[in-house]
Amino acid sequence: MDFSNYTLYTSGLKGSEATFGEEAEKLGIQEVVYSFEGHKLYRDKNVRILDKNQLERGDISMELASRMLNRTYYETDKIRKVLQTIFHMINSGHQVFVVGSIQEDGSVKGGTGWAVELAKMFNRPLHVFDQPTKAWYTWKGQWQEDSPRIEYETFVGSGTRYLSDAGRNAISQLFIDSFKS
């Protein structure tokens, strides 16, 4: 299989994103890490630093983000840049894979939840490995347990910085199941 046509998009943070990047690298899948000036990365291969104008294309009202995620995001420059960076990830990849925790209201915990909400708004195939239940779920107007595969040449890998062994294994197995010869 020719993996040179595949591209993974992340923001290079520790945990889920670093693990997605490591798994992609094993197969020779290109990885693009979106970031911004001054942001500390765990994984810094193929980094694309977004300038002020690029970041602004992904701008969002913090009030809107807070409402959509049922939590409060305060207006800080760093949080805004993180959310803007997530916009570029989701806008670049066709299929979205996230590791985190699905909340009772259907949102996903933390900043990872913004990637999930954007994927829904952009109508991207969306899959979340829920660490508490140790299962993959696909968004089909509601969460449905599933066994997803990487089916598109551009995809996003995002999620929690606090990756459990189950989450790490789920990412590894996703690549095995998607690309076994």
Score class of each variant (00 low, 15 high):
D2H: 12
S4C: 15
L8C: 07
Y9A: 05
Y9E: 02
Y9V: 05
T10Y: 00
S11V: 13
S11C: 15
G12E: 04
G12A: 12
L13C: 05
L13N: 07
K14H: 08
S16K: 02
E17H: 06
A18C: 02
T19Q: 09
T19E: 07
G21P: 06
A24H: 02
E25W: 01
E25K: 09
I29K: 01
Q30W: 10
V32Q: 04
Y34P: 00
S35Q: 02
E37M: 09
E37W: 06
E37I: 11
G38F: 10
K40H: 15
L41W: 09
Y42G: 01
Y42T: 12
K45V: 08
N46G: 11
I49T: 11
D51Q: 13
N53F: 12
N53A: 12
L55C: 11
L55N: 06
E56P: 08
G58I: 10
S61Q: 09
A65K: 04
A65M: 06
A65N: 07
L69D: 00
T72F: 08
T72K: 09
E75R: 11
E75N: 10
T76V: 11
D77Y: 08
D77T: 13
K78F: 15
I79Y: 05
V82F: 12
V82Y: 11
V82E: 10
L83E: 00
Q84H: 06
T85L: 04
M89A: 01
G93S: 05
V96D: 01
F97S: 01
F97E: 02
V98D: 00
V99L: 05
V99H: 06
G100T: 06
S101R: 15
S101P: 10
I102M: 03
Q103N: 14
G106Y: 13
S107P: 01
G110S: 13
G113D: 01
W114F: 09
V116W: 01
V116R: 03
V116H: 04
E117N: 15
A119H: 02
K120H: 08
M121S: 15
M121K: 15
M121P: 12
R124A: 04
P125F: 10
H127L: 05
V128C: 04
V128D: 02
Q131K: 10
K134H: 07
A135M: 14
T138V: 05
T138H: 06
W139F: 10
G141A: 04
Q142I: 14
E145Q: 15
S147Y: 02
R149V: 08
I150Q: 00
E153R: 07
E153V: 09
T154V: 04
T154N: 05
G157D: 00
G157W: 00
G159L: 00
L163E: 01
S164C: 02
D165M: 13
A166F: 09
A166N: 09
I171A: 09
Q173N: 13
Q173D: 07
L174P: 01
F175V: 00
F175Y: 06
I176Y: 12
S178Q: 11
F179K: 10
K180M: 05
